[in-house]
Write a protein that binds this DNA or RNA. Structure first.
Length: 434
RNA sequence: GCCGGGGUGUGGUAGAGGCUAUCCCUGGGGACUGUGGAUCCCUAGACCCGGGUUCGAAUCCCGGCCCCGGCCCCA
């Protein structure tokens, strides 16, 4: 009987893995050069870590279970909460800001769709200890540069939930209602927002101001809003946002100001941003990154430290990441022992020794099926190898090997030493050992 | 949770109630134990699962599973 893959999961074949590894390497590389260090948390956690953050309702969207010790556990549905937990448990004493990144699989029990799976990967970073504009700008610039390293065309929208919250407070809306409104804004339900405000007896011109703020887009939105007195001149959020945008210019980051981004979660406190695929390849799921400044640590029993972070949907990036076929094609070498019918082991011994040397710097095959010479070459061809190193008794007699270029068919006899040098040069190995 | 379209060897397919299920690609072996990509031969390998209708089901019906896409959601 044939066993099917679990719903919403995928197998990654070598070609896909090569692509994903290239992406991972580039993303890690950028993060490292920006001074972030990789961390890793467990694949499963106590379920309450996630319900505390997102409410009991998300239990039905998680893979949660009881272990044999009756602990209530869950496969992680995201990585922010685990990272904060790790920080509170064991990173508290590190110098601030603490800059970390992560890459890991997450699990959600949802209906699979385009670029949406039950097991998916997130790549994200957290700045622990700062939500100042300097930190916000660096974080956004980092996300921007990671996308650049992947050659992905994307659109960055930056907002600030503080502006809207301030506006609502000015309108005498209480905190509980503010959170409700933020959630509605995030869902784009304007009508519901208006109704709720009417119920709360908010004056009509204040409602208009709010709606106007939500619609603000583009570089000049801030000046316009201030010009029309929608934002108070002494607004803290405004000052923070202006500074952030200034810094983004220094970083050379292109952005669209979008005050309508609300991220309907209570713990977002300041800057928020989202990045969308600009190529239209993702259908309905076109958001590839989300982040912002938030306060979450106190919820998990830590000090209420400011946090700024983002997470990329790695699978969505993989969907739109284009890579040269050349980069994906694995080019290696095959060592071909030519055995005679007496099954003389000296040829095999020599071949293995040569393969071991080549394996220090290039993918190397050697026959595992006791095949004939021509069958070995046929296999090498099917595997897109570049060179064959032929080792037979003729070569052994002369202490030589035959190096055959599988692209051109040219071949020539040479010593093992010359062969190694030649292949090192071809595969661009620098820093010859002495 | 809801809606639409699908599921035949590794992959891609033909087949529309009736012979041993078509063809291409693929895997293994051989022609060919010192030179590959061609050709030929042999060989491996499939009707998603369960039930129903029928003399007879890959084909029609029902349920499930899975895939693709959309809604909801997206921490």
């Amino acid at each position: 009987m044939r066993i099917e893959r679990a719903r919403g999961t995928r197998d990654f074949l070598p070609a896909e893995m090569r692509k994903r590894k290239i992406m991972e390497e580039r993303m890690r590389d950028v993060a490292e050069r920006w001074g972030y260090e990789e961390i890793r948390t467990p694949t499963f956690e106590r379920a309450e870590l996630f319900t505390l953050k997102s409410g009991e309702a998300i239990l039905k969207e998680m893979y949660e279970f009881r272990d044999k010790g009756d602990r209530h556990l869950a496969l992680r549905p995201e990585l922010t909460a685990p990272v904060i937990r790790m920080y509170i448990n064991e990173l508290k004493m590190t110098p601030k800001p603490t800059k970390v990144y992560y890459f890991g699989n997450c699990f959600r029990y949802e209906e699979p769709q385009k670029a949406r799976y039950r097991e998916f990967w997130q790549f994200g970073t957290e700045i622990i200890g700062s939500d100042r504009p300097e930190a916000q700008a660096e974080l956004i610039a980092l996300a921007f540069n990671i996308l650049k390293s992947l050659g992905v065309k994307a659109e960055l929208h930056v907002g600030h939930v503080g502006l809207i919250r301030e506006r609502l407070r000015a309108a005498q809306v209480d905190e509980a209602h503010i959170n409700t409104v933020m959630r509605l804004i995030d869902k784009g339900e304007r009508q519901a927002v208006i109704e709720l405000m009417n119920e709360a007896d908010v004056k009509k011109d204040l409602i208009d101001d709010l709606l106007c703020l939500l619609d603000s887009k583009g570089k000049n939105a801030l000046q316009e809003a201030r010009g029309r007195n929608i934002i108070a001149a002494d607004s803290d959020a405004l000052r923070e946002l202006e500074l952030l945008l200034e810094y983004l210019d220094y970083y050379g980051v292109d952005y669209t100001l979008n005050l309508g981004i609300a991220r309907g979660l209570d713990y977002y406190t300041g800057m928020v941003f989202e990045i969308y695929d600009a190529g239209g390849m993702l259908g309905a799921q076109n958001q590839i990154c989300g982040g912002g400044s938030y306060r979450l640590a106190a919820l998990f029993g830590g000090e209420d430290i400011p946090l700024t972070g983002f997470a990329f949907g790695f699978d969505r990036l993989a969907e739109i990441f284009g890579v040269d076929d050349k980069d994906l094609e694995r080019r290696g070498v095959v060592v071909v022992p030519i055995r005679d019918k007496e099954a003389d082991l000296t040829v095999t011994k020599e071949a293995i020794e040569i393969a071991s040397r080549l394996r220090e710097f290039v993918p190397t095959h050697i026959d595992l099926m006791n095949r004939s010479l021509s069958a070995q070459l046929k296999y090498a061809n099917a595997c897109h190898d570049s060179f064959a190193v032929l080792v037979g008794k003729n070569e052994l007699k002369e202490s030589n090997v035959t190096l055959r270029n599988l692209d051109t068919g040219e071949q020539e006899k040479m010593s093992v030493e010359d062969c190694v040098v030649r292949l090192k040069a071809y595969f661009g190995v620098i820093g010859e050992e002495k």
